[in-house]
């Protein structure tokens, strides 16, 4: 790979969606997302010689994307993590208006808005599991969180989101 920029460009094309999903859910400022994604791939290029094939390349790249996003949040204090309650079941969303959801696309946008209001660890776990299709074991490798914690975050986040869309479902969405 060293020196072969065409191979690197192909690698970027292959993994840009993975990196975008992770960064987009972590960083709330759309203007910064592209810059952070670029930073992720520059880090990938610089550290590629250190990749030892002990894990999947996708897991390794997702790990770089996750920590780059987290560092950005910490560095610019874009998010005060203590704002979230310890007991996530009591979390109150600010955007709580599901009545206008007419199609599945509206519902997807509504859920997207709800996810963006969740604490960053919940957002990350939900994204890595459902969008990037990583297993709990791989998510543990990426984030450094214990597998049990990941399963618990997944369960609680889904339960919370399900309760929000349930009312909407009763109104007979497609």
């Amino acid at each position: 790979m060293n020196g072969d920029m065409r191979a690197f460009e192909l690698l970027v094309k292959q993994y840009e969606r993975l990196v975008y999903f992770v960064v987009n859910r972590l960083v709330r400022e759309p203007d910064d997302v592209e810059d952070i994604c670029q930073e992720v791939f520059i880090k990938v290029h610089k550290s590629l010689f250190r990749f030892s094939f002990q894990s999947k390349l996708s897991t390794w790249i997702a790990q770089i994307a996750y920590f780059t996003g987290i560092n950005y949040i910490k560095k610019y204090k874009k998010e005060i993590l203590s704002d979230y309650p310890d007991d996530i079941e009591n979390y109150h969303f600010t955007n709580d208006n599901p009545e206008q959801l007419l199609t599945k696309k509206d519902a997807a946008n509504y859920v997207e808005q709800l996810i963006l209001q969740l604490p960053e660890k919940y957002r990350t776990v939900i994204t890595l599991f459902h969008l990037n299709e990583f297993s709990c074991e791989e998510i543990s490798e990426i984030t450094g969180m214990p597998e049990g914690t990941i399963k618990s975050y997944l369960f609680r986040a889904r339960k919370l989101l399900k309760e929000k869309i349930e009312a909407h479902l009763k109104g007979e969405l497609i």
């Binding site: 997807a108 969008l131 399900k162 869309i165 479902l169």
Partner: peptide, 12 residues
């Protein structure tokens, strides 16, 4: 409800 939610969560 969960099945619907899973579908939404997998929507890019």
């Amino acid at each position: 409800a969960y099945d619907f939610l899973f579908n939404l969560l997998e929507t890019e």
